[in-house]
Amino acid sequence: MTDLKDIAVAEATAQSGTPKMTARNVSVFYGDKMAIDDVSIDISQENVTAFIGPSGCGKSTFLRCLNRMNDTIPSARVTGDISLDGEDIYDSGMDVVQLRARVGMVFQKPNPFPKSIYENVAYGPRIHGLAASKAELDTIVERSLKRAGLWDEVKDRLVESGTALSGGQQQRLCIARAIAVDPEVILMDEPCSALDPIATAKIEELIHELRGRYAIVIVTHHMQQAARVSQRTAFFHLGSLVEYGETTEIFTNPKATRTKDYITGRYG
C-alpha cells in the first residue's frame, strides 16, 4: 500500500518546479524528545514558501535544519537527508560557514551588529573575500541596501550605528546583511513578529521583490501573511508536516482535516 505522505510529497514536488533544497525523512531530537517527525519537502527558487502552524509545532526547528543552526544546540540531533543543489548539507566535508553564506537567515528579532550601517552590510563580504577593493565593497553595500529597500533612507548616514535605526529599518538592514554575501536561499523566522503594521508591510513588499532571485522560506504565525507573501505553504502540527501545496489550495481547499481545522480557527 502506498503511503499517503509519499503521495503528498510526490504531488508537491511535481508542482513546485526544480527544487533548490530537498529534505527527505528529516527528524530532529533534543535529547530523547522528538521535535520533528519524518518531514520530507522540496523548496524551489521560483516560489516563496511559508511554514505555518500553531506555536511549538516544529516549524522554526525545521527551518533551522536548513542551514544547520541546530548544530549550535548540544542536545540536538538531526536524522534524514537535506541537500542544497543535490549536495548533502550534513556531509562531514561540508563547510558550515560557507553553507550559512549560501543559506542566509533573518531572525525573529532584528539583530544588527553594534557597528555602523555600512559595516553591518560589509562584514560578510569582507570575511568571505567577496570584494577585492574598497570600491567593490562600496558597490556591494549600496546594491544590498537597495535590494533591501533601505538605501534611500540611510545613504547619508552610513557611519551611524545600525542599532540607532527603527525596528523595521533594523530588520531590513539584517536582510541587506544576508543578501550582501550573495546567498542562494534566505530563511526568515517570523521576521515581522516584532514590527508594527507599516514596517511589516514594507518587509512583505520586499519579500515580493526578492522572489525568484533567492529561494525564500518564511516561518509565520500569521495565516494572512502566509496568504499574502507565499506561493506554497507547508502546515506543521505536533512536529509533523501535515500538508504542503499551493498556498491558494491550502487556504481554500485543504486536503487534511487538521489543516482545515487550523485554517478555520478551531485551534491554534
Rank of each mutant, 00 (worst) to 15 (best):
H128N: 10
Q108R: 06
G86L: 08
F113K: 03
M105T: 15
M94N: 11
S116D: 03
K109A: 10
H128P: 01
K115Q: 08
D91C: 09
D88G: 04
G124D: 00
N120I: 12
V96E: 08
F107A: 07
Q98H: 15
A131V: 01
I127L: 10
L130M: 15
A101G: 03
L130I: 00
P110A: 00
P114F: 00
D85A: 06
Y123T: 12
I89C: 10
M94C: 10
K109F: 14
E119V: 11
Y118F: 13
L84R: 00
S116P: 12
R100E: 06
G86I: 09
Y90F: 13
E119T: 13
F113L: 13
Y90L: 00
L130P: 07
K109Q: 14
P114V: 01
A135F: 09
V121W: 06
D81E: 14
K115C: 06
S92V: 07
G129P: 06
N120D: 05
G129F: 05
N111D: 09
Y90T: 01
I82C: 01
A122L: 07
V97L: 13
G86C: 04
K134E: 08
S83P: 04
S83Q: 15
E119W: 06
L137K: 11
G124N: 06
I117Q: 03
D85Q: 08
Q98L: 07
I89R: 03
L130R: 04
V106L: 12
S133D: 02
V103P: 10
R102D: 13
V97S: 15
